[in-house]
């Protein structure tokens, strides 16, 4: 296995006095899909938001331990948060495009990073590439000026994924990206993830065990802030080592 892209060492996270992550040691391999499963409130979202330091926005949140991205500690003092978040993109649970045009939604990241001064043709090309990589270009190429919020939820979620690409991320974090979608749309997003995995490293949080089993290469099971077990998805789902994992995947807990 290649060197991990993301690595946590003795990671603890506190919300005030409440410890939400307990000594988490996790390694995420490049160009693979890693899923995090576990019962509600066990800290999956919290763990995900460690990787792009979105927890910094929560008042009173405190992190100890190390988190390495490409070998560099992203919690080291002096870390450039903006370039970290460029490298590590995030897709949220509810599709949340801005209530502006598809075109403007895709280019939002560009505008922020002041890669402006590009010609209209170049911008259109960028939008095209982004939408192509989420397989939306054919559907939307004549509707680029329409409101993104008028599209179907699945299309909206694809736009939220596409909007990450303009800033050239390496890692995509997805927090229950399909929980607002119907089964068909979910299947198509899962297909898309397989496609994206060729170029990106994906970490997905999901409530849906079948989804984790279907899409991911590695799986981690969390329980009450601990990473109970981590390994190849197949192994976790067929021969879990820990009793708690077994109870969860066989439906006896959670």
């Amino acid at each position: 296995m290649a060197a991990p892209i993301l690595l946590t060492e003795s990671l603890n996270l506190f919300y005030g006095n409440f410890q939400a992550l307990k000594n988490v040691n996790l390694s995420v391999a490049g160009r693979r899909i890693t899923s995090i499963i576990g019962p509600s409130g066990c800290g999956k979202s919290t763990l995900l938001r460690v990787f792009n330091r979105m927890n910094d926005l929560v008042e009173g949140a405190r992190v100890t331990g190390r988190v390495l991205l490409d070998g560099e500690d992203i919690y080291a003092p002096g870390t450039d948060l903006l370039s970290l978040r460029k490298k590590v993109g995030m897709v949220f649970q509810r599709p949340n495009p801005f209530p502006i045009s598809v075109f403007e939604n895709i280019l939002f990241g560009l505008r922020v990073h002041q890669l402006a001064g590009k010609s209209k043709d170049r911008l259109r090309e960028i939008v095209k590439e982004s939408l192509e990589s989420v397989l939306l270009w054919e559907d939307l190429k004549d509707r680029l000026n329409g409101l993104a919020t008028n599209l179907s939820l699945e299309q909206q979620q694809r736009i939220c994924i596409a909007r990450l690409f303009v800033v050239r991320p390496e890692v995509l974090l997805m927090d229950e990206p399909c929980s607002a979608l119907d089964p068909l749309a979910t299947a198509r997003i899962e297909e898309l993830m397989q496609e994206l995995k060729k170029n990106y490293t994906i970490v997905i949080v999901t409530h849906n065990m079948q989804q984790a089993a279907r899409v991911s290469d590695d799986t981690g099971y969390m329980y009450l802030g601990e990473l109970v077990e981590f390994g190849a998805t197949q192994k976790i789902f067929t021969t879990p080592r820990d009793k708690r994992t077994e109870d969860y995947i066989t439906g006896r807990a959670g």
Partner: peptide, 22 residues
Amino acid sequence: PGSFREVSLSLGATKLQTIKYA
């Protein structure tokens, strides 16, 4: 909505850019 700010920040925008654009 708070999610507008969250998305913008998660795309690497500064706080000021987030206010201005999102």
